[in-house]
Design a protein around this nucleic acid. Structure first.
Lengths: 336, 336
DNA sequence: GTCCTAAATGAAATCGATATCATTTTTAGT
DNA sequence: ACTAAAAATGATATCGATTTCATTTAGGAC
């Protein structure tokens, strides 16, 4: 280690510039010197110093990803997609786990300002659209997953929340349910808003009156789903089915039901969203909406890197992937 | 953006050196100029350029983590621990998902050579001890989780594999089992080796003959556990319990049993290792050995960063955390 | 006010690679 | 063989911060 380009140059009997050319363009160098240089590089086990390269080129070949909690498989699968796509393009990924704290996320966003990363992908509902737009206008490259932003350049990739939520609730209605609760995530997140919209649309289309008492929220977390379910149980409003804005909260519903002796699906049908791996293993298996997590990660990483390299062939900056309902036992029980 | 230290210096009416001092030592600057500089920094929204800083200081404040598959919760929980500990010390984490490929891991190790990271944590059985020792001897800082390396400086953090495996198998014996299969991971990994050792020790202590036909391997993956179970079923050797070297493979056992109509725990008792979150949700809940994943991540990240900053108060470089058996329904069935 | 020391500040070298520009070497055409 | 064009190579400035070393300013004692 600790060999510099000049050391290699000396050993090969050429200038540093030539070594650099061999290692980069390599077009303007004669075959003979090229071989000499490569031999020296090999013998000295030379590796160009990343920081020097970054300073000169003004690019780090690194992107950052902000997620609220890497342990939740929804996020880790997105990260995997991002990482794989980045690797294929020789980019590295810095992982930023915010522990669901806005403050930490803001701090991580600072990595853009000091050029630690070339771009940033946000997979979180906490940072507001305005803040993201601010960064974008300052000239930083960033994208979001799970929401869309009203902007010409900010990349986004999400799923058709309204449609699949409508389909999920319609499915419950077709099973004979008329009193369907909704447990949402963060009330001001696009994911929550659109999923609620689909829920309302399904009710309306089937002339089922909307009851505010059947709405609650669980912050997209298992514990939140659990608490929301208990609150719903306390209320006067009876319900025979519940649609949760993600699977984590559905797990909370399961826990609350277990404690209270409520049977799924006989007493309560449950449908979640995400198709987390765990949902296929629990009993009863949870009906849920597949979310192409890995694919969304790949999509956004590719587009972001394209944008960083001015390769935006298409003008498109908003991507919506279709997702579909997976019916399992938790809702597969015809009610009369 | 794009403000340099000289711009700040000009605005504050001082030299670049002074600005640098304010932003770093800050001890040798008069209070008055310090305020002037901070005001200018604030007004211009100045952020020191990371690459320039890294080049000069020869440190990136970044560590890399190599894992075989970030989706597996064993790894993502370790990563979370590493990330949190790093964040607290102002270090960033580059995530390297190798997709279980040695070649990718070797490529990622190259990040050490070109100084993209200050240190590296390996949470993988693929890279050999010798390679790790080589890097260490070249002067690079690295550590491993889940194994230990015979070396004076390479950091490691693992659990007491032999003891807890012995306890797990002893538990099965106490439940009345005499024919106990073992499904291991990668045969040349320390995790596998030590867990097998505990298995053998429990058998021996209880005068139960070892039967080679009851040993198989599943590469630490669900699919591997599934296939290994099918192979065991094919053989002549009957068995009433199985100990798997991790939970993923135990999930494979469950799948194979479901397909073949084998009941757990009545026909087959199962004990895994890791206490992945999913094991508490499946039916029957899986008996397993808790692994302090988050804590191991925190431990190694802290020690690694200490080492990078020559803060190795203690001479210790090998850490072993005790882990304990969690008995759930998958093995809680007394056999007669 | 003078002198000496300590504190504060600035000029310039440095980290290691890349890219521009100038120069040398090679090639090709007549 | 001579010249023009093309190819190959080298010298040097540059990226943006930090740090050493020199210099200036301030503070204190007499």
């Amino acid at each position: 280690m600790d060999n510099k380009i000049v050391d290699v140059a000396k050993r090969a009997g050429v200038s540093a510039a030539t070594v650099s050319r061999v290692l980069n363009d390599s077009s303007l160098v004669s075959e003979k010197t090229k071989q000499k240089v490569l031999k020296a590089v090999e013998e000295m086990d030379y590796h160009p110093h990343a920081a020097a390269k970054q300073l000169r080129s003004q690019r780090t070949m690194t992107i950052g990803v902000i997620v609220p909690d890497i342990i939740v498989s929804y996020f880790s699968e997105i990260i995997k997609g991002i990482e794989n796509a980045a690797y294929a393009r020789k980019y590295k990924v810095i992982i930023c786990d915010s522990d669901n704290e806005l403050e930490k996320e803001m701090e991580y966003l600072g990595l853009l300002s000091n050029r630690t990363v070339d771009g940033m992908i946000l997979v979180t509902p906490f940072v507001s659209d305005d803040i993201i737009k601010d960064y974008s206008q300052k000239g930083y490259t960033l994208g979001v997953i799970g929401r869309a932003i009203d902007d010409e350049v900010i990349l986004s990739c999400k799923t058709n929340n309204v449609q699949f939520s409508e389909a999920a609730v319609r499915h419950l209605i077709e099973q004979g349910h008329k009193q369907i609760a909704y447990i949402g995530g963060f009330s001001d997140s696009m994911e929550n808003y659109e999923r609620m919209e689909g829920y309302l649309k399904a009710l309306k289309d089937n002339r089922i009156p909307f009851k505010p008492g059947l709405i609650d929220s669980g912050h997209f977390m298992e514990s939140g789903g659990y608490e929301a379910t208990l609150r719903l149980f306390e209320r006067q409003e009876p319900f025979t089915a519940v649609f949760t804005a993600n699977d984590e909260m559905a797990l909370g519903v399961y826990r609350a039901c277990r404690e209270r002796g409520v049977r799924i699906p006989e007493d309560l049908a449950v449908v979640g969203v995400d198709n987390n791996r765990i949902t296929g293993y629990i009993v009863p298996p949870l009906s849920t909406v597949e979310q192409p997590k890995y694919e969304m990660g790949v999509c956004l990483a590719e587009k972001l890197i394209d944008q960083l390299n001015d390769l935006n062939a298409s003008e498109q900056n908003k991507y919506v992937i279709e997702s579909r309902l997976i019916v399992r036992d938790s809702s597969n029980y015809l009610r009369n």
